[in-house]
Design a protein around this nucleic acid. Structure first.
Lengths: 356, 356
DNA sequence: ATCAAGAACTTAATCGATCAAGTAGATCGC
DNA sequence: GCGATCTACTTGATCGATTAAGTTCTTGAT
């Protein structure tokens, strides 16, 4: 049995292919009576509407955007940053009738083996990908609209959505310094593709392939400089991941080797949560014995015990804005650069250091 | 400037279109030397590889599967059931080089306005959609391979992946009854598309458009019957959602109106977490003053205070299996029916009821 | 009565790739 | 030395829809 196409329906009704096409896509181009006649015939023949592939080939429009992410799949769907971002993207694309194609690049898998290079999408949303990740080149090579979110900043070549990481970090550090803390630890998630964990230093951060890490450290140091303190005063530590477990392990080690620390600046609330657990386990009372500042302001930050002081960034909005920007770019080709607002949210995980 | 296609490259090298196509898709069909020559010419001309739309039209193969879900977008990406399932799907599809297209149908939006009816996918994964949801018909009408997960059970028309909900529920109820509980409340998520909350009854559950609700209640009642108890003995309550907040509100009301309850059977760990919070707030000590059983065994269940007794189902595996089944069905058209193993996990949220 | 404008359709070209079938020449076994 | 089999390509048909540019017919204004 031959497949039912526009032509089949057209033949049945006795009109041209174009008219049947118009019955679906431009109802104003033909009379109501004929239109209904066509739709009836279509139903009768089991025609399911214009075929997506045929349309795509002709129009060059895929009707979907791709979301590229390179984090380990065990974490992406549990990581609040990612899921909230996805939520925003999904909302926006769904309302626009655009499909959203997930393009995960699992760790250890060659990008060429994934759907990334060949998927039918009108553009790519690149979500927080280290600048040295091979998937980036694959995406860029397709020369389709690209919106980079957070990482990496590729300049005007692509659109960009992010926050002022340096300023946000500065806010967090200012808060701790203002409370009187002088022995402060900085807990990074990752500095590059590798999942290293352990102590690190300014030099290594400066060479990090993750821009956010570099910028945030600059922000922390900006605050130090305002207080005439030495940038070398921070204890820098890499967690190797962005989940509470990584945070807990790293913070435990850090506090063990540096018992003098009275406060921790964490790269995310996820890490902060782990750090808080670590603090309690090594016998610190929060916040008196250890102050902790997170980043992001995920819902859990407010309900954690103690509620976390953090730097809020609008994660869902980030997704919405990025999706809008991409769909706009698909339409008119214009790139954009959007910086979302951030805000220090002071809760109960920070306090002046206990006198000793 | 005309677009660069297979033909452009073919003309440059002086071979046929087919040979260029083979250079990409069937490297064994031509000599190495020629192949490199073609690839060089392609790079030189800025050819980005075979166009997805052209290939799709010709092969009829879209290279992507669609994931349909109809829950409110504010919840899907935070709901552990959904995200773990997605993780499994993403893993499997990514390893197979298949795209994964998210097809959310936002509440209040007409399915026809979304990407669902026209998206270029080879098949659909229908994730826990109420049997009366309009999106279902839209998907079924396309007559592509469909794998339904959990809900609804459409018989042999589609593949199906799920668990033995009735048996799982029975296990949970048996556990409570075995501990000596006789006044037990059942906390449902939803019974249908509507987000009703409040007390409900056997009759309404029996008419629920959500099969899982019906089956689980049967399972709970199976256990009751084994103890020669009356099915009417359960207090049935609808939470209206599947998040801890919904669970907390519903459980608070339920415990207020039915202070005699000594145990709660919850439809999910999310609801159980909310119920546990509610229990504490109304002054019950857990588990002595109130036993709670969840369902799913999400990671949080084990770390909650007290750790939740629950019925474990392999959520990530569900995603893996469903994706495999769908991709298999896309290839050979065969449908399947897979029931995943479940298991009662007894932790500390259940205990014999306090004597009074 | 004539012409302009609009409505309702049709014609014909086009989008880019894949595949079954075919061909020419090289290689091999016996 | 001859047919059989391989290798390395080419030919030509085909997938299903959209769209710019007609064509025909109707209607209303002058």
């Amino acid at each position: 049995m031959a497949r039912v196409t526009l032509q089949t329906v057209a033949d049945r009704v006795g009109v041209s292919r174009t008219t049947v096409s118009n019955a679906y896509n431009r109802p104003d181009q033909l009379g109501d009576e004929l239109r209904n006649q066509i739709l009836d015939a279509a139903k009768d023949l089991g025609y399911r509407g214009p075929d997506a592939a045929g349309r795509m080939l002709r129009t060059g429009h895929m009707g979907a955007i791709g979301l590229l992410f390179t984090e380990d799949l065990r974490f992406v769907f549990t990581d609040p940053d990612t899921t909230h971002f996805m939520q925003g993207v999904a909302e926006t694309s769904a309302l626009a009738g655009t499909g959203l194609t997930l393009l995960p690049v699992p760790v250890g898998v060659d990008v060429a083996e994934t759907a990334v290079p060949n998927m039918a999408v009108d553009g790519y949303l690149v979500f927080s990908v280290p600048s040295d990740h091979p998937a980036l080149e694959t995406v860029l090579r397709r020369e389709k609209p690209v919106v980079v979110v957070d990482e990496p900043d590729l300049g005007s070549r692509t659109s960009f959505v992010g926050i002022d990481d340096r300023f946000g970090a500065k806010l967090a550090a200012q808060h701790l310094l203002g409370l009187g803390h002088r022995k402060i630890g900085v807990l990074f998630g990752r500095l590059s593709l590798d999942e290293n964990s352990g102590p690190t230093d300014r030099q290594r951060v400066a060479e990090a392939s993750i821009r956010v890490a570099r910028d945030r450290l600059s922000g922390y140091e900006d605050a130090l400089l305002e207080h005439d303190l030495d940038p070398e005063d921070f204890v820098l530590w890499e967690a190797g991941g962005n989940d509470p477990d990584s945070g807990r392990h790293a913070a435990t080690d850090m506090l063990e080797q540096h018992p003098e620390l009275t406060a921790l600046l964490c790269f995310s609330d996820q890490l902060a949560i782990g750090a808080a657990q670590a603090g309690v386990r090594v016998g610190r009372e929060l916040p008196a014995g250890l102050s902790i500042v997170g980043f992001d302001d995920i819902p859990r930050a407010a309900t954690w015990d103690p509620p976390l002081t953090t730097v809020r960034q609008p994660l869902v909005d980030k997704g919405r804005v990025a999706a809008e920007l991409l769909m706009q770019q698909v339409e008119d080709g214009g790139t954009g650069r959007i910086e979302l607002p951030i805000e220090l949210v002071v809760r109960s995980s920070t306090a002046p250091p206990a006198v000793r």
